[in-house]
Amino acid sequence: MMQKETGYLPKRYNIKSVKEMTSDVKLLRVSSKINPLPGQFIEVSIPGIGECPLASCSFNKDYVDILLRNAGNTTSEIFKLKAGDKIYIRGPYGKGFPLETCGKDILLAAGGTGIAPVTSFIEYIEKNRKKFGKITIYFGFRNKDYILLKDKILMWKKKFNIRLTLDQKSPGYLNGFINQLIEKDHPNVENSVAFICGPEIMMKAITKSLNSLGMKNNKIFWSMERRMECGFGNCGRCTIQDVYVCENGPVFRYDFIKPRIENEEHANEVKE
């Protein structure tokens, strides 16, 4: 393992290109050799504005792709940046997808911007294709205007079994949620490991479907979103009970994180 990084000094990088994905999502390609492992995250910032934790959306030694949704104070400023502008990054942080799952069939599922960490894993698989078995990838988006990384998905279609479904009905596309599609497809999950990223309500539904196919929770991994402020287990902002998402995650085996999430959800459900 690398020595634990505990500094706040970001490095400055050049933005190579900016691609508009939807009205509120952009893909920034940053020239950087930090090459986060699949599922790791970075702290992206603009001096004077602020920092935000974002998943790396690539596995490449020459650049980092950042899939950015215009959602908060900092992201809305980053959203204004153009090719040639500078951006500041520190990291990578956290534990990504367990790469020792080599040899297994892989089932990936991503909803919305949850496609970012999943993409980094797909690109890792592309570069290490022989290490993995059958690859099945599920994508879910709101409607056809919200499909992210269209070019990449088209390219992956040639290599992997891609299943794309939209929440809203649209001609030429499958309709429904990912969990419904999985139940319909009824894939053989005997030798499979699943990696999911998306809103927690979606991850829960997919997990339930996978369970119904016979997949155990210890074969299912969630990539979690929390407020990672420092990135290395000091600030305490991203904890789920006794677990630091930044340090112990953001990718967790579901049987490990499930009781912790459920306890906090239980406490959230109280009427005030």
Binding site: G50, E51, E229, C230, C235, G236, R237
Partner: peptide, 8 residues
């Protein structure tokens, strides 16, 4: 000791 990081 939990903290926030902010820019000025």
């Amino acid at each position: 000791t939990c903290f926030e990081i902010y820019d000025e």
